Structure formats: C-alpha cells, structure tokens
Simulated scan of single mutants.
Amino acid sequence: MARRQVAEPARRELQLEGFLPYLVNNLADRISTGLSRIYDGEYGLSIPEWRVLANLAEHGVLNAKQIVSTTGMEKSKVSRAVKNLTARGLILQRRKEEDNRARDLALTAAGLALYGDLVPHALAWEGELLDCLSVSEYRDFMYLLGKLRQRATIMEQEPPE
C-alpha cells in the first residue's frame, strides 16, 4: 500500500522526540506510572494486576488468553497477576468444562469492592490529567487515537513489504 504524505515533509533521519511510536509509548508509560501511584500505593496492586482487575470488572468473566489479547500484556505477566490476585482473594478461577487446562476468571465480592473503591480515584486522576485539554481538544484527541488504533490494527494484518 502506498504511503500517504502527512503534514510534515518526508524525513531521512530518525529523531525520537518527533517519532510517533516513541512519543506515544513514552506518554503511555508516564500515564501508567502516574496512575499506578494510586492503585499501587493505596491498594497494593501492580500495573498488570490493575489491568487484569479492570478487565474483569468491565467484561465479567474472561480467561487468561482473552486478557492477554485485550491488554496486550505478556502471558507471563498476566499469569503472575492472576496468581497474585487469586491469592489475595480478589479473583476466582473456575475450570472450563470443555478444557481442563483453561480457567474462567471473575472478580470475587472483595475484588468488586476494591475495584469500586479504586475507580473514583482513578477517574479523578484522569480528570486532572485531561484538565489541560478543552472539550473539543479532548474529542479530537479521542477521535485521532481511535483512527490510529484502527490503522495500526489493519497494518498488523498486512504482510511485510
């Protein structure tokens, strides 16, 4: 597929401060680390544990493979997070009838309570972060993120040139 020209002229040198993958990854790391001060400091959750907890709260029942797919985390990180959350009594594992190795995961009452307590803090933190954007900037930003996510998904499926 031919590459379209974007607003900037074609570059011949890579400069990280203007390289989108670097900028987005750096921003994501900073945001994730900043938010982790809430769920790690106040609730003793690691970043992978928070992601597993949040996905189970949003989707109800998932297996580890689905969480890996949804979050993009490595299988070993999901497995460790599931083990830790299970040991803390925050998630319940049930064997799938059709596959003895696979397990359905769901939040326990304690997991739901912790998540319910944590969410207002996380949303307040997000609100403070986004406070620098106007309503239209936020809308445009979310639209552009969605557009880039969709394009990246298409590009993942294309054979390499």
Rank of each mutant, 00 (worst) to 15 (best):
V119F: 01
L92A: 08
D99I: 08
E156F: 13
E98A: 13
R95I: 14
G111L: 04
L114A: 09
L20G: 00
V68K: 15
A152K: 09
C132P: 00
S46I: 02
E137F: 09
N63F: 09
A64D: 04
L62F: 12
N25E: 12
I38T: 10
I67H: 02
M73L: 08
T33H: 06
C132Q: 09
W125I: 02
E8V: 13
M1I: 11
G41D: 02
V68N: 13
A2D: 00
F141L: 15
M73S: 05
L20T: 08
V24H: 02
L23T: 01
E17A: 12
R12F: 14
T71G: 00
V61T: 12
A106F: 05
R30I: 01
K65L: 13
V61Y: 11
A110R: 10
N100P: 15
E97R: 11
A113V: 11
R80I: 05
L20S: 07
A124R: 05
K65M: 12
N84G: 11
L148C: 05
D99C: 07
R88P: 04
K147H: 13
G127W: 03
P48H: 03
R139W: 15
V135H: 06
V61P: 03
H59Q: 07
K96M: 11
Q150K: 10
A2Y: 02
S136A: 09
L107N: 03
E49Y: 00
I67T: 10
G72P: 00
L130M: 09
I154Q: 15
E161R: 12
L53G: 03
R4D: 09
V78R: 01
E49D: 03
Q157K: 13
L85R: 07
F19K: 01
D140G: 08
V82G: 03
E137Y: 07
S79M: 14
L16N: 03
Y39G: 01
P21V: 00
V68H: 11
I47R: 07
L133T: 00
R88S: 11
E49C: 02
L105E: 01
R30T: 01
T33I: 10
L112W: 13
L20V: 07
Y22S: 08
R94E: 15
P9G: 10
Y138V: 05
N84I: 10
R103V: 14
A10F: 06
E74M: 04
D131C: 12
A110D: 11
I47Q: 02
G127Q: 12
R30A: 11
D117T: 06
L118K: 03
L14I: 13
D117A: 08
E137Q: 13
G60Y: 13
L118F: 01
P120R: 08
A10I: 06
E158R: 13
L112Q: 14
E156T: 14
L144I: 12
R80Q: 06
L14M: 14
I154S: 14
E128C: 12
G60F: 03
D40S: 04
T33A: 09
E13A: 07
P9F: 02
I91H: 07
A10G: 03
A7Q: 09
D140K: 09
L129D: 02
L118D: 00
E58P: 04
P120W: 11
E42N: 03
E98G: 05
A10Y: 04
L112F: 11
E74A: 05
L114E: 06
M142N: 14
R151V: 10
E13S: 06
A7Y: 03
R12A: 07
L105A: 04
